[in-house]
Write a protein that binds this DNA or RNA. Structure first.
Lengths: 334, 334
DNA sequence: TTGTAGGCGTTATCAG
DNA sequence: CTGATAACGCCTACAA
């Protein structure tokens, strides 16, 4: 491996001078500088990141911990993070598949000394307690999880607001019997979406009906199952709000299989507004979630923290969602 | 930051002993070992990756260089890489958005000393020449690019075979006037798919018609434009093969806008088999590409190389594609 | 079984 | 303006 010493030797100077030139730190004579650049180029010299980080205690690397890497959701988020990181000269150390707490902890530990800061998403368990095992000096941005006091910076989606907006829209269409297919149990986003659903109903003076809250797990199959169950009820709902689009797709199938039509016979809506939503038949009404922006925002805040900039007073941030009305909803029949 | 020294002090031993315990290298008395483990846990000690890599010259990190991070394609590939890497105790240093050669080069350089090996995808330019700037000792797996001699390991999709299979299917349905919407210019996969299209026609004794080869750029809009152009021809084709599914979606729209129906009036097919393909109306026939497997394969081969295992004789590997026939194709009308 | 000491590639702090 | 030299945190002979 070619080191700074090789460059120094070839340029006929000391390593200190080479370092000064390459980091633009300190005065160097123009001729020496050009000789050094020449030598470095010829040798294809690149400083060793590890050695550098050892002394500067900076790695120019951001750690990203995600529960999964599946589907368009995480792809978009990583894209947002990567774009911002790249602009500021940071690399990304990525680690997915941490659905279990122990895995997440191991991954966090493994990142010590390799990253300057962390972006972690853990909708399944309280990330704040998890982060306590980390040195307090390590800046961390938490995504989509319990706030856990004001000591950590948290960025999340306005799940409750989005769900509320959707249910209010259904109410405005005239629906009174509105069911919800809930997402994975113990999932942060799910719980909040359920809350939004309930509070919108409550605001309209409608008592919550346990039979109208069916458990799903975010999968298409579970959505199909849940909707089938709802349709079999003595008094079935006139509208079904699914906690995500995948389940809504399953729901669409279930409705079709039952010989009914959307939206003529029943309304089905989702949450997330994945690209597919617009291509379904009928196009699915949903709640748009700014995933790319969430990644961008997380990276921006982390880098600010890395630069020692003071944290803005609002440590907990909510990214707004947006209601997207397509043709999968209509007023209830007769 | 808590270092090995802190652990040593707390356990009342020397740093050497701590190192021996933590790396299971060398004999240590049971009591000392337990004291050390205790101390390490209490202090939340994790060795500094940089310092360690300095002396072992190993980073346990794989660099991943991609042209882009947009869409389901890269997400799937990263997932494949990550899963395999994790199983073998490797981290992922990710870097996207390298459509320009200079960017790619910069990213490669920046990874020196941070990774044990590289997985690089660069469909736009010859990656082999690019890699020449890297130290020859650095194991590299190239994805979807020119072979560039036998000195590098390359993994690619069987684009030509997939295209051929699709066109042969159309021929078998009775089509003779088959057009192709080409992908982005100078793109590796595109060129190969075009080749497959041409050779299938040739094998059927059909002379290639330049008017039936329209330029696209992988975007939905370009597909729409290209298909519109084809429909306006004096003798329009009876089937249109798009180099990817996005363009096929645009093509579907164009056909619809022209007042025609798929597949009754004209056949439209794509390539890639993205999840969306199955949900379009009509469901789109396409060529399935094993993206996740490509990522898996690349990581597996790289890790084998990292362990010093000899490279299997076939340095250039082609992953098989699979024809997926749905209802967007039918025999030509009348 | 244990500790001491040297060195990995850099940068930073000194003298010159 | 430049060059020794001491860290940074860790591993590994070599000695004890």
């Amino acid at each position: 491996m070619v080191t700074i010493k090789d460059v120094a030797r070839r340029a006929g100077v000391s390593v200190a001078t080479v370092s000064r030139v390459l980091n633009k730190s300190g005065p160097v004579s123009p001729e020496a500088a050009s000789r050094i650049h020449e030598a470095a180029d010829a040798l294809h010299y690149v400083p060793h990141g590890g050695a550098r980080s050892l002394i500067t205690s900076k790695t120019s690397t951001i750690g990203v911990l995600l529960p999964d890497l599946y589907g368009g959701f995480f792809s978009e988020m990583i894209r947002g993070i990567d774009q911002t990181a790249q602009q500021h000269g940071y690399h990304l150390l990525l680690s997915g598949s941490h659905n279990r707490r122990a895995e997440m902890e191991a991954a966090m530990r493994a990142m010590r000394g390799r990253t300057d800061g962390l972006i972690a998403m853990s909708p399944h368990f309280d990330a704040a307690t998890l982060v306590q095992n980390l040195p307090p000096s390590l800046p961390v941005i938490l995504l989509s999880c319990e706030a856990g006091g004001a000591q950590y910076q948290v960025i999340a989606i306005d799940n409750a607001g989005g769900a509320e907006a959707m249910v209010k829209h259904l109410l405005a269409l005239g629906h009174r019997r509105i069911a919800m297919v809930k997402g994975e149990e113990g999932h942060f986003d799910t719980d909040e979406r359920l809350q939004g659903y309930r509070s919108a109903l409550q605001a309209a003076g409608i008592a919550p009906d346990p039979a109208y809250e069916v458990q799903g797990d975010f999968s298409e199959a579970s959505g199909s199952r849940a909707v089938k169950e709802l349709l079999a009820l003595p008094v079935p709902p006139t509208a079904i709000f699914c906690a995500n689009d995948s389940m809504a797709i399953g729901g669409l199938h279930a409705v079709h299989d039952a010989g009914l039509r959307v939206p003529a016979d029943i309304t089905v809506v989702g949450f997330d507004d994945i690209p597919l939503a617009n291509y379904l038949s009928p196009p699915l009404s949903s709640v748009h979630v700014p995933i790319f922006e969430m990644g961008e925002r997380a990276a921006t805040r982390l880098i600010a923290a890395l630069k020692g900039e003071p944290v803005s007073e609002r440590r907990h941030e909510r990214l707004p969602t947006q209601l997207v009305v397509r043709s999968s909803c209509a007023p209830p029949r007769g």
